[in-house]
């Protein structure tokens, strides 16, 4: 795995943005891995939650944004409950999502959901997905 690490303006800015939006002390993470072992969506993630935490700490922000982790997260709060350092990791994922969505980018293209599919979906699924995946 090729990994670009180190702090430059760009990844420092993202680190700050994530800490500000989430209100979480990302630097406290000591890589115990409980978040990842409790994550129900981990199988489908490019990088595990604890890896994402590490990437933020070491300035490997490109890696995170290349990967799908924040977009696979379903906000189930397992990681948040398990974290021994009390970091609300779900909030960190939210901040990563917002760092993209706030640039007026939609990760879920609403137009791409088939009309027949919407017919069957409960409103609760549509509202949730649009709140978490569109800007």
């Amino acid at each position: 795995m090729e990994l670009k690490i180190g702090y430059d303006d760009k990844n420092l800015a993202l680190m700050k943005e994530v800490e500000e939006i989430s209100g979480q002390p990302v630097m406290l993470c000591y890589q115990c891995g409980k978040c990842s072992s409790s994550c129900p969506m981990a199988d489908d993630m490019d990088y595990l939650p604890n890896q994402v935490m590490k990437f933020i700490q070491i300035g490997a922000t490109e890696k995170i944004l290349e990967g799908n982790t924040p977009w696979i997260c379903a906000e189930c709060f397992n990681c948040t409950v398990e974290c021994p350092k009390g970091i609300d990791i779900a909030a960190v994922m939210e901040a990563l999502r917002l760092s993209i969505l706030r640039k007026n980018i939609d990760v879920l293209r609403i137009e791409s959901i088939a009309e027949e599919e919407i017919e069957d979906l409960p409103p609760i699924a549509l509202v949730a997905a649009m709140r978490k995946l569109t800007g």
Partner: peptide, 8 residues
């Protein structure tokens, strides 16, 4: 179905 954006 026609205006899914209402869910936003």
């Amino acid at each position: 179905e026609y205006y899914p954006e209402i869910n936003r």
